[in-house]
């Protein structure tokens, strides 16, 4: 059985088939990229996995468990974290609090304990803080710890999105266009981090990406999507030479 599996997943908006009977599987420790033109339905697949949308049909499995009917907040608890294409950070909070929200799934304290800030809460906070610090170190975010998000440049926010997802110590991470809006240097950093994610932290990666050089550098396998349908699946080179994919990108 595969680690993560989508079975003939469909999502319809009225007459529009944003995702149309898409099936694929992700193996443990793999980096799988989804490519495709704008509007192909890539983000929609992520939104289905994180349960922002309910699939019109199809099923999703993670670690052999059917998660199609799980409430959205349970997806994170199962160990699936994500980033957003257009950055969904908590604008009016500090970087540190943003990252600490990433720890939410690990918090065990009760409301009344928190009101009194009992020793158990304090101990928990210290653990969270230490884990967050590890992520900060991993992604070189030290200069920004106490800054408000609303004052930070786009490139840094993109990294903080990744950091917040990592703080939840995910098993599977969904990255929606991690390099969009980044310059060449920042994209280079991102590709190193994505590879380190897997090698150092053992996270499985499912990624939507437009930058082909980044896709080629990090992916084990690639899925090409157009009009909500899978065009091709395989190694980066195979998929890019597939005639349907070439046609889709040329706009034919």
């Amino acid at each position: 059985m595969s680690y993560f599996r989508a079975e003939s997943l469909s999502l319809h908006f009225g007459g529009l088939k944003a995702v149309d009977a898409v099936s694929f599987a992700v193996e443990k420790g793999e980096i799988l990229s989804i490519i495709g033109p704008n509007g192909a339905g890539k983000s929609s697949i992520f939104n289905l996995i994180s349960r922002i949308y309910r699939p019109t049909s199809g099923r999703i499995f993670f670690e052999d468990q059917d998660i199609t009917e799980q409430p959205p907040y349970d997806i994170a608890r199962l160990g699936i974290a994500r980033t957003f294409q257009n950055i969904e950070l908590f604008e009016n909070a500090s970087v540190l609090s943003n990252l600490l929200v990433g720890r939410h799934r690990h918090s065990t304290t009760q409301l009344w304990q928190e009101l009194l800030f009992l020793p158990s809460v304090r101990a928990g906070e210290k653990v969270h803080r230490r884990r967050v610090e590890q992520v900060i170190e991993f992604l070189d975010l030290e200069p920004y710890r106490d800054k408000l998000i609303s004052g930070l440049p786009y490139g840094v926010r993109k990294v903080i999105e990744l950091a917040r997802a990592l703080c939840s110590e995910p098993k599977l991470i969904l990255l929606d266009e991690p390099s969009s809006g980044l310059n060449v240097e920042e994209t280079g950093d991102m590709s190193f981090w994505i590879r380190d994610l897997r090698s150092e932290l053992g996270v499985t990666v499912l990624m939507v990406e437009h930058d082909m050089s980044l896709v080629n550098r990090v992916s084990d396998r690639v899925i090409a999507l157009n009009y909500g349908r899978v065009l091709a699946m395989g190694s980066p080179a195979e998929v890019q030479q597939h005639p349907d994919v070439v046609a889709a990108y040329l706009g034919a």
Partner: peptide, 29 residues
């Protein structure tokens, strides 16, 4: 103040700024 430095307070702020992101970080909005 205690609440604000605990998970609950941070979840509140997260909901204020982006419900979608809060949810996908595991907050039962």
């Amino acid at each position: 103040l205690n609440l604000l430095r605990s998970p609950t307070g941070r979840a509140f702020v997260a909901i204020r700024d982006s419900e979608t992101a809060a949810r996908s970080m595991g907050v039962n909005v």
